[in-house]
């Protein structure tokens, strides 16, 4: 293991911190959010931008946490390993939050249409859809992509996602949100 190489790579990518682990816990998420708060305060990031970073980070990590909790007991062999990271892109003066985990084909079929639906929406449309869904009580339970992705879309300047097929009807789901540091 060459830690110098790893550190260079993390530095070059502007990665502020990263978690690559089996199962995310609430404690881990809250400690990382804590660290993130200190980091943004140190760099004089505005409250507006930093709360958007925290919210998206929390939303993506809790998604992953809930997902691994829900699938841990299923009969399928499930690999809960996932990555979540926050970085800063100096060139664009923007922050990025990235998550990647393994999902089943069934979950892909739930997540993909939601994201494809949100992607072309304007800021105002996202806001209206968010309020409509919140009011309707659909997807009431926090597990599963209810208004979570709309919350993220509302708070970032751009997002992107992809599903890479793995074996056994599994997919690697990657999601990235960018926030301009105004």
């Amino acid at each position: 293991m060459n830690i110098d190489q790893l550190e260079d790579f993390l530095d070059d990518s502007g990665i502020i911190f990263l978690s690559y682990c089996g199962i995310l816990t609430q404690n881990l998420i809250s400690n990382m959010t804590d660290a993130l708060e200190k980091e943004t305060a140190m760099n004089n990031v505005s409250l507006s931008v930093s709360t958007n970073i925290f919210t998206i980070f929390v939303e993506l990590s809790q998604n992953m946490m809930n997902y691994s909790k829900n699938t841990a007991n299923s009969e399928d062999s499930f690999n809960p390993k996932g990555i979540v990271l926050v970085g800063y892109n100096e060139q664009n003066n923007s922050y990025y939050i990235l998550s990647r985990n393994i999902v089943s084909i069934k979950d892909k079929s739930k997540i993909l249409p939601k994201l494809e639906n949100i992607k072309p929406m304007s800021r105002d449309e996202i806001k209206q859809e968010y309020r409509k869904l919140r009011r309707s009580g659909r997807d009431k339970h926090e597990c599963g992509a209810g208004i979570g992705f709309l919350e993220i879309a509302k708070r970032c300047n751009a997002f992107d996602f992809k599903f890479n097929p793995l074996e056994d009807d599994k997919y690697q789901f990657s999601f990235q949100a960018n926030i301009n540091n105004k």
């Binding site: 709360t51 925290f54 919210t55 929390v58 939303e59 809790q62 919140r134 009011r135 009431k140 339970h141 926090e142 209810g146 208004i147 979570g148 709309l150 919350e151």
Partner: peptide, 11 residues
């Protein structure tokens, strides 16, 4: 700040 399930709950 709050997550989306809190937003639903406040509603």
């Amino acid at each position: 700040y709050f997550n989306s399930s809190s937003s639903k709950l406040f509603f």
